[in-house]
């Protein structure tokens, strides 16, 4: 049984004409690193929230289909169970803050405290998360005074402190300057190997750094599903993402035969950038 399964999911916002998601189906296995590529306004955030079990919510319901983890529909999960199974980090750094923690420590401890874990366990979790995300020196800072990059590291730390099996990253670097983005990506590469990661992106660079399997979300459906080279060279990908540079890069790899079968993925960030020679403007 797949760890995370999306089954024929169709969704529209109330009073909206167009379906945001129109029959999305795919599954994610334990330990996989998946990138879902999609143009802006292509339904990434909506899909991310469905994957993370944050939808359905009130009047926001599926037209058809559902998302399940470990074979159980998200609607059947208790909030405490679900938050220990999956975590979500979104785009805008300041919006990822809980908004009720006075310090970095409290921000990371917020989730574990809500689980009513023993104090020692909470401390151990916060400690570990701060180490992984390199936040020790900021422990007493007010989260809202941190830089965007620091806030994103903080929200990933807070997510990790919940000890999830799956981490959903919705364009985690899109609001960061190039330097903070690279720092964050380097940090993400250090995440524990057993963690299943799904990253939803419009940009190629973070996807390449993190994922070994690529999906293209196009017009509310999954158009392509496979290794990087399949998606990169797929005409719809090039069209929808509108990044000619990628086409170029993709072709180059293909022509050179340098990234054909047998070449292990994921690449490291440096590796990917070098191979692709992705210009900075492309992200």
């Amino acid at each position: 049984m797949a760890l995370l399964e999306v089954h024929d999911l169709a969704f529209r916002f109330p009073r909206a004409e167009k379906l945001v998601l129109d029959g999305v189906s795919f599954s994610v296995e334990r330990g996989e690193r998946v990138a879902i590529l999609s143009p802006n306004a292509g339904g990434k955030t909506t899909l991310a929230r469905w994957l993370a079990g944050l939808l359905p919510d009130g009047v926001l319901k599926a037209e058809r289909g559902h998302v399940s983890m470990d074979g159980k529909d998200w609607t059947e999960w208790h909030i405490a169970e679900r938050s220990s199974a999956i975590q979500y980090v979104g785009q805008v750094p300041s919006q990822q803050m809980t908004g009720c923690a006075f310090t970095v420590f409290e921000e990371i401890a917020f989730g574990p405290c809500n689980l009513a874990l023993p104090e020692a366990e909470v401390r151990a979790r916060v400690d570990e998360a701060m180490t992984v995300c390199n936040l020790r020196h900021l422990v007493d800072r007010d989260p809202f005074t941190l830089s965007g990059g620091e806030q994103q590291r903080l929200s990933i730390a807070a997510a990790l402190a919940m000890k999830p099996q799956v981490l959903i990253l919705d364009e985690p670097t899109s609001n960061l300057d190039p330097e903070s983005r690279d720092d964050l990506l380097a940090q993400l590469e250090l995440l524990p190997g057993e963690l299943t990661i799904v990253v939803l992106e419009v940009a190629l660079r973070p996807s390449l750094a993190l994922a070994d399997r690529f999906l293209l979300l196009d017009e509310g459906r999954i158009a392509v599903d496979g290794p990087a080279i399949d998606v990169l060279t797929h005409p719809r990908c090039i069209e929808t993402l509108g990044m000619t540079a990628i086409t170029e890069a993709g072709r180059r790899i293909q022509n050179a035969g340098g990234w054909a079968e047998g070449r292990p993925l994921p690449l490291t960030l440096a590796d990917a950038l070098q191979t692709l020679q992705v210009p900075d403007a492309v992200r």
């Binding site: 916002f13 109330p14 009073r15 909206a16 919510d57 009130g58 009047v59 926001l60």
Partner: peptide, 9 residues
């Protein structure tokens, strides 16, 4: 936006 208000019955 509707997506914001739709959950406020």
């Amino acid at each position: 936006p509707l997506r914001l208000t739709s959950n406020f019955g």
